[in-house]
Design a protein around this nucleic acid. Sequence first.
DNA 1: CCAATAGTGTCTATCAGACAATATTAC
DNA 2: GTAATATTGTCTGATAGACACTATTGG
Lengths: 254, 254
Amino acid sequence: MSVEPWEPPSVLLAVDLVILTLRSARLHVLLIERGVEPYRGSFALPGGFLSHGDEDIFVAARRELSEEAGLADVPHLEMLSVYGEPGRDPRGRVISVAYLAIAPRLPEPVAGTDAAGACWKPVEDVLSSGLKLAFDHRRIIADGVECARVKLEHSALATAFCADTFTISELQQVYEAVWGVRLDPRNFYRKVQNARGFIVPAGPMRRTENGRPARLFKPGPLQVLYPPMARSAQSVSAPPGDSTAQNPEGGVLS
Amino acid sequence: MSVEPWEPPSVLLAVDLVILTLRSARLHVLLIERGVEPYRGSFALPGGFLSHGDEDIFVAARRELSEEAGLADVPHLEMLSVYGEPGRDPRGRVISVAYLAIAPRLPEPVAGTDAAGACWKPVEDVLSSGLKLAFDHRRIIADGVECARVKLEHSALATAFCADTFTISELQQVYEAVWGVRLDPRNFYRKVQNARGFIVPAGPMRRTENGRPARLFKPGPLQVLYPPMARSAQSVSAPPGDSTAQNPEGGVLS
DNA sequence: CCAATAGTGTCTATCAGACAATATTAC
DNA sequence: GTAATATTGTCTGATAGACACTATTGG
């Protein structure tokens, strides 16, 4: 036993952002090409260290969202998990708090600001391909995507992917893209309508594109879907890169 | 703009444990009466700082589980969330990673080891009463309990509350205690049996207590319950202290 | 007219909850 | 026998998914 007063070790605290959006009916994540070591040339999640010792973590997440991604505001931002494995950052002991952000569809490729090399990448490509990713960011992205998939079932998160107003088929595209399945439009229509409070009509306006104009809706007050939107069924074409066991655990049966 | 090289701020990293178990058919959490400042005399979650700068967080959680709670092993230990609000610890900027642990029923009140003042407290009392809790630990406990409630629906977590083998009615008591509801034993019996792989028979043994002896079961390979155990129905007495929005977000309807 | 999408109605297998009935122990 | 719990069976209302059908636009 040492008699010297023991000092607890200190660590560096970082924030990383998994920002998801829909582009061309596919799920995308915002990545930044690193211009400095370590991992220069690799892609990484937007993020960084606390700006000062008193900065709140959530505030830091919003700051990075603005600085690195050029997004002043997003409809959804929540803590995802923490990554603190000792060897994950060659610069030292860095604990990273990951946040999941959802951006509405089709925000333009981001420009100006600090977000120079920022670009949207299809999640499918990022998770499956050999695209070089810095640190443990592939794992963080996988966790973020799985979190979004689960939350789509039980919460009104899907509306965060949509613009202020949206049609039911646009909402369906969110589910189809994030889950990687095809859903029956008629049953989907009935289901979201029966979850009263999930979406509410947004004015008598309609919109046109190809067929009969659709009613417009906006998010309602309902945040928790009960019963949930069942993700089980009609997988028309098994999408590649769907290996998303979020826990180090066993199989799914039924 | 300063030309001096900027140094990111460093923080102290702590681990806190929400250890839940069942005692007398009620949900309990393990608390420790603090003997030192700050918050001397208040109850707090077992936990502490990293022992050294290279310690893995999960390893630290297991170390604290052993040192402070006297539990060498638990059937379930997973990260819960992170708490890093600047003012949460008067000693400085402390980031705490909270873990949720589930202990099997009736581990004796813990003794020896470091776990001197450790004791099991009913969660209901802890969350509702004026029991003095250190730091933001009441909030952490509430988040942990809510996490357990949700996980009981969709995963095989309930078996972690039970001994190596258990009867179906013991498993039912877990659900009833954690959710604060009464369930129909006959429908519960059918439901867990139909979720094949959730629990499997453990030998032809039986056990006795009051009525007809019950079959013994042990946890099966199934980890994800689909369909989930619906928590909706027969709430006998609404359990207090259920305000657990871990993010600054909206309400629950339906 | 046709193509395409929006929206409604209907059928059926399945399931959750209510609850009767039977089985097996202790007393 | 009674009391108590375990286990099985049955009924009924609700629901998810399949899918026919109508509505409304553009061309």
